[in-house]
Design a protein around this nucleic acid. Structure first.
Lengths: 120, 120
DNA sequence: TTAATAGTTGAACAACTGCTCAACTACTCA
DNA sequence: TGAGTAGTTGAGCAGTTGTTCAACTATTAA
């Protein structure tokens, strides 16, 4: 179903067609919102967002993070895997430890904007 | 259980205590991460993030959004309620229509950072 | 006042998510 | 090599979430 069909099939009749078409033209392809949601979803869990904020402060190994967050190493490792798959964190092994770091500065920026919204 | 107890009770023994305490001191109170996660969670659904990105382009009524997203007015209204409760959107009634707008610029900034991360 | 359209709400359900547990691999040191 | 610690993984589950449906309220126009 293309975008025009969606407009026609809609249950409603109050649609401001000119505006809807204007906005439609500015939106990204549907798949982009899927990807974006899958990325931003990772910030939507208290454990994960605390974990990310912690890694903003200093690189840490899985044990450190588990202690800091008060959850098992397994739980941390599961979350880190998701974050790694979305390129939010990167890891480096040093002996028995695997140290985790933020992959780039976007994490910090998103978390900062979130806190700004809450605090302002 | 305070933060020191968490450290002591942890199953692991490899903890880098100095680093963990250093990071601990920089973290926010636990409740802040709950709030932050509840906020950012709203960006973690394709329908909602598309809706927000659409409102970035122009204010729209519920019918317009339903047509644009290809979902029912009910679904849109449920989502808008969540977004309103978190001060991400605001509404104004004009006759039979209720027009929705972004409440401030944080939405745009968070979505932009998300797309940046995906595209860079 | 009545009919019509816009929008909201609560219940119910299917799909998803984050945790724990147990079993596994990886590395180190004696 | 073998024991010990760090980390990963998959299954299973309890709790959560996004949608639809049906019933409701709000506003307008005749």
């Amino acid at each position: 179903m293309d975008e025009n069909e969606k407009l026609e099939l809609c249950e409603s009749e109050c649609i401001h067609e000119d505006i809807v078409r204007f906005v439609q033209a500015k939106l990204q392809p549907a798949g982009d919102y899927e990807e974006l949601a899958n990325l931003l979803k990772l910030f939507g869990d208290p454990t994960r967002v605390k974990l990310l904020h912690a890694l903003e402060q200093h690189e840490m190994c899985v044990c450190d993070l588990a202690a800091l967050l008060g959850v098992t190493k397994s739980a941390v490792s599961h979350q880190l895997k998701l974050l790694r798959m979305s390129n939010l964190v990167k890891s480096r092994r040093k002996g028995q430890n695997v140290f985790y770091n933020l992959a780039d500065d976007h994490v910090r920026q998103i978390i900062d904007k979130g806190f700004e919204h809450l605090w302002e």
